[in-house]
Design a protein around this nucleic acid. Sequence first.
RNA 1: GCCCCCAUCGUCUAGCGGCCUAGGACACCACCCUCUCAAGGUGGCGGCACGGGUUCGAAUCCCGUUGGGGGUGCCA
Length: 489
Amino acid sequence: MRVRMAPSPTGPLHIGTARTSLYNFLTARHAGGTYVLRIEDTDVARGTVEFERDIIDNLHWLGISWDEGPQVAGGDDIGIFGPYRQSQRMELYAREADRLLESGAAYRCWCTPEELEAVRREQEARREPPRYNRRCLNLADADRAAFEADARPSVIRFRVTPEVIRFDDLVRGEVEFDNALLGDFVIVRNDGMPLYHFVVVVDDEAMEITHVIRGEDHLSNTPKHIALIRALGYREPRFGHIPLILNPDRSKMSKRKSQTSITAYREEGYLPEAFVNFLAFLGWSPGTEEELFTLDELASRFEIGKVHHGGAVFDRDRLDYLNGVYIRAMSDEQLALRVRPWVPDVISDDGLLRLVPLMKERLVKLADVPGLIGFVWEPDEVVASWYAPELLHPKKGGPDEARAALTGARDALSALGDSDFAADFLEQRCREAADGAGMKAGDFFSPIRVAVTGRTVSPPLFASLEMLGRDRSIARIEHALGKLTGVAV
RNA sequence: GCCCCCAUCGUCUAGCGGCCUAGGACACCACCCUCUCAAGGUGGCGGCACGGGUUCGAAUCCCGUUGGGGGUGCCA
């Protein structure tokens, strides 16, 4: 078995491409087959090397690797079927196009886009299917000779034979199309650039691809490809069309309506292992109630034949949940490492490790880290700027209660030495102080929380105080007291 | 318009003729735990699109309807 993924570098790695790549990868790994990466960069107008870079990087990030593929960073191609960029395979396409021309399976067409457009409009007006009228196929010899002598640019069209095309789709079973409904489609542009339908077929043959697994949006392209395969005398691979990933409104997932670039998810701090797990289940399930799988486990369980037929909506909530599960399953040491890019250097590795227990259960995405524990490293004034004085008021109470709690806490904390400034001690003393002030613990803690973390929602208060240390904790409480007087009058 | 594909809770799905009073997960709601928020625990809400067949029996098979999606490029 030889399978391939064939991304086009006309944009950053897209969720759909990532999922298709994953399914191909899993299919190859499951069967012990070979996995090939081929860059389909025939669209020079839209493709860029930056996008190719993004695609390769993010595929790697997801843990998807390939046995054969293009050279990267000046290295050599991996594999003997290269080059693996279509832009480097032009002689092959030219040769195969000539074969088609010679056999009469393809022909040159000199129609201009404007002429084509006019014909299309007429057909639509007559409610006929819009397809090429074969004007250039039926050209008189003299006219053809004139065009050729003129060296006027021409495209090459594939002459579609009217016949019913059937194939046994890996995921859908028997599918049939009537190619009589197809027009003669262009396979080489008038600037000599070969087009997708053509190159994909040529390369799959040249690279000995046995299984073509792609998105359902290609299902109706397959009869074209099969026709081409037959005309060229190629072997027909198996085809499998996997369901699309959908926007919430159930249309094909698009940049306009959803976040589709893998880079964006990576930057938000989703874990690749969670992301892959999530992606795998968008259109497939092992048939049991298990739902946590590593890439290796997916590879051993995945079967292309068990892939669903219907599209799947991309559900952020579920992704978030899964990411949280993976975060919580990590050791503190692992999580500290993963979170490092979101934490400033002033926090040492040891310090970060001590911070991890404060955030682990609360973390959904790694990028949430600063919002969660930023108060630890932000300057006192910055933390103070996060809250309005009114936020210091406990739920049941006003400035008086806030002041009572804050002064009580300040006194209790001040009485403690640096070595006693530990969470359990702090809690004990603050509870005593709450009693002393005749307040409920919750109401007493609330102003302290806001003063120290700048927010009404925070990690556990006393562990937070401990992390912050005696002096900074007291300073923040004093500061809060000052803010309180400013408005209390 | 034409061609093709698809159809189980809001979402991801289990189900492949009797095990289904349709199971799980996310989300949502309630309660418990609790210094806030989480995490965790318990419970709840919620679905076989519709109509015909076939069969002793249909979420499962067939046909139709409806709905949704994809394609219909000198993009991929």
